[in-house]
Nucleic acid binder design. Structure first.
Length: 286
DNA sequence: CACTTGACCTGTCCGC
DNA sequence: TGCGGACAGGTCAAGT
């Protein structure tokens, strides 16, 4: 689920309810998901106030009054659900499996807050993780990511420059590489390449500067459009679990194998490129 | 060094 | 209905 637009949506929602709250309890039932010791979480998280909520690449960051930052990665199936003191589920991630209640058997971490609200972390596949680190470690960790695609320091020139290190790989693999540009995952890689009319298997070194620029622009366009739609949710979920994203209905090629291309009407194909299922129009992506 | 594959997990879907 | 296999939004370590 979570690529840049989804994590950004969660970040905005959680900012509204978490900022200024003090953490009163930290419960974990699956220590596999912790990248830092539980002891460190207890000492630097419990009793601290949440000063701000940020996003970098696909990481969600909770900045604490202790000077530490909780770093949350949702990977494929992680979700965050905020439950108000009343028990009402107000905002959250985007539920994936048919979750009938929260918490449930996939709830592995629970944060209790000073206003009696709770933040649940569920993760069916258990690939996600929580880590707590100080500002120095944080700077180091974040320095490994490429530029934020929607920031002003992501320029066509910066993009072109970074692509030069991967001239012999496919353009799809290149834009999935978080060191080249951060936050793009499988859905938005396919969507961006479709908008730019580029075949995902094209080698980076074969791109003209015009094509590179088209891709640069399409990445920004696709990500903005998805953020405006609150991201992508895979299954429709209609109860009180917060709103779900509507980009799924707006997608152009991803998951549309055998359907008509929205641009030329020819049939959309699916191949494995860069080790990932890749959707594209053989007629208008060259 | 640069690039590709397998592994981490659980659930779902499809064909036989 | 059961069962095996492929596949799933991400990222590493290990292999070529």
């Amino acid at each position: 689920m979570p690529e840049l637009p989804e994590v950004e949506t969660i970040k905005r929602d959680l900012s509204n309810v978490l900022i200024g709250r003090r953490v009163s309890r930290f419960l974990v039932s699956k220590t596999r998901l912790l990248k830092s010791s539980k002891k460190l979480f207890i000492s630097k998280l419990v009793g601290s106030k949440i000063l701000s909520v940020d996003r970098r690449a696909k990481l969600l960051l909770l900045n604490l009054s202790s000077g530490y930052t909780v770093l949350i990665h949702l990977k494929m199936t992680g979700q965050l659900v905020y439950q108000r003191a009343s028990g009402k589920l107000k905002v959250g991630g985007h539920p994936i499996v048919g979750v009938d209640k929260i918490p449930n058997k996939y709830t592995y971490i629970t944060l209790s807050l000073d206003n009696k609200a709770k933040l649940f972390f569920n993760d069916v596949r258990q690939f996600g993780y929580w880590q707590i680190i100080d500002s120095k470690e944080l700077d180091n960790k974040l320095s490994h990511f490429g530029p934020e695609p929607l920031s002003k320091n992501f320029t066509a020139e910066a993009f072109y420059k970074r692509l030069q290190s991967r001239r012999r790989t496919s353009i799809k693999a290149a834009i999935l590489d978080q060191k080249i540009v951060s936050g793009i995952g499988n859905i938005y890689a396919d969507e961006s390449l479709f908008v730019a009319r580029l075949y995902p298997g094209r080698l980076v070194g074969s791109l003209t500067s015009k094509e590179t620029r088209a891709l640069f622009l399409s990445i920004k366009q696709v990500l903005r459009k998805s953020i405006n739609a609150r991201g992508t949710s895979f299954n429709s979920y209609r109860d009180g679990l917060g709103r779900t994203g509507t980009y799924w209905e707006k997608r152009l090629v991803y998951g549309r194998t055998s359907q008509a291309c929205p641009r030329c009407g020819k049939i959309i194909k699916k191949l494995h490129i860069a080790g990932r299922g890749t959707h594209f129009c053989p007629n208008c992506q060259k």
